[in-house]
Design a protein around this nucleic acid. Structure first.
Length: 287
DNA sequence: ACTCTTGTTAAAAC
DNA sequence: GGTTTTAACAAGAG
């Protein structure tokens, strides 16, 4: 599940690999992965990649032609795999969490970008929820505006979180997952942030004390920063543009650790359902 | 065969 | 009428 840290890794790597490169051709293998109302392949062919931005979990690729962008989202199983001209890489090999993948492209490849230098960028997505769509500057701006501040920026403050949670009758988990209020947290990092803040994810948001909100503010920020520094989390599907797994997986305190001992208080981690999502917490030290 | 998995959104319920 | 919850989407794992 790519969340902010994983998408940020992809953004950084793609920036190094494809900025300035010209797209020679595009093969759309599945119409659902692009905007079927526009001719994606025709409009993108011949363009150069000027800039790659990330807001929340969205990627925005600026093309050299005026007013043309690619807005992308990996959703749950989307992957962007880069293959240089002389890269006979065994993608994802050697790690228990990421099965060795066959040569690119394969049966989950939805879009193939071929650059003029002979390198390729593959958009692979098993479940076909993710997409790469054409967008105008106005459409990109609208999408950005629809997202709340990211916890890793200065726009996100303790006061902002305070206002956000005040009088809310929904769970802390649901509140933190709402991208229009806070952009970038997903199922993994919400659970991890709640553990760090010692708050149960099913607590009513409006009932948190000022001290708890302060801790939650710090936790949401640091968990994303730490995850970025570890290269993101590979829990099931995420790999970076080289097909490599993220190293934050070993740092997870609760996500996927149900039945195991809490690293802080030794209680057994539980898994329940909150806000319609699988939710992990420690019954010993989260209140 | 049946349940579970998740990011986002639109519809339904409150 | 603003807020909150649920269903739908897809396809595979167990």
């Amino acid at each position: 599940m790519p969340e902010l840290p994983e998408v940020e890794m992809v953004r950084r790597q793609l920036t190094d690999k494809i900025i300035g490169k010209q797209i020679a051709s595009v093969e759309v293998c599945d119409w659902k992965s692009v905007d079927h109302n526009r001719n994606f392949a025709t409009e993108v062919a011949g363009r150069k990649i000027v800039e790659i931005e990330r807001v929340g979990k969205y990627l925005f690729l600026t093309l050299d032609q005026n007013n043309l962008y690619i807005a992308g989202h990996l959703k749950m199983t989307g992957r962007l795999i880069y293959q240089g001209m002389n890269d006979p890489i065994q993608y994802g090999g050697g790690h228990a969490l990421s099965k060795p993948q066959p040569e690119q492209p394969h049966k989950h490849t939805r879009i193939i970008f071929t650059f003029t230098d002979g390198s390729h960028l593959y958009f692979n997505d098993m479940r076909k929820f993710g997409y790469m769509k054409l967008a105008t500057a106005a459409e990109v701006e609208d999408q950005k505006q629809a997202l709340g501040p990211e916890p890793i920026t200065d726009l996100y403050s303790k006061e902002y979180l305070d206002k956000l949670l005040a009088d809310r009758k929904t769970s802390v988990k649901a509140a933190l997952l709402k991208q229009s209020d806070i952009a970038g947290l997903g199922n993994i990092y919400v659970d991890e942030a709640c553990w760090r803040a010692k708050i149960r994810p099913d607590r009513i948001a409006g009932n948190l004390t000022p001290k708890e909100i302060k801790h939650l503010y710090t936790a949401t920020r640091t968990v994303l920063e730490d995850a970025i520094n570890f290269g993101g989390t590979t829990f099931r599907d995420y790999v970076d543009t080289n097909g490599e797994h993220g190293n934050f997986t070993d740092e997870l305190a609760v996500f996927g650790r149900q039945g195991e001992a809490c690293r802080r208080c030794e209680a057994i981690i539980e898994k329940t359902r909150v806000a319609g999502r699988g939710t992990h917490f420690c019954p010993g030290c989260q209140v």
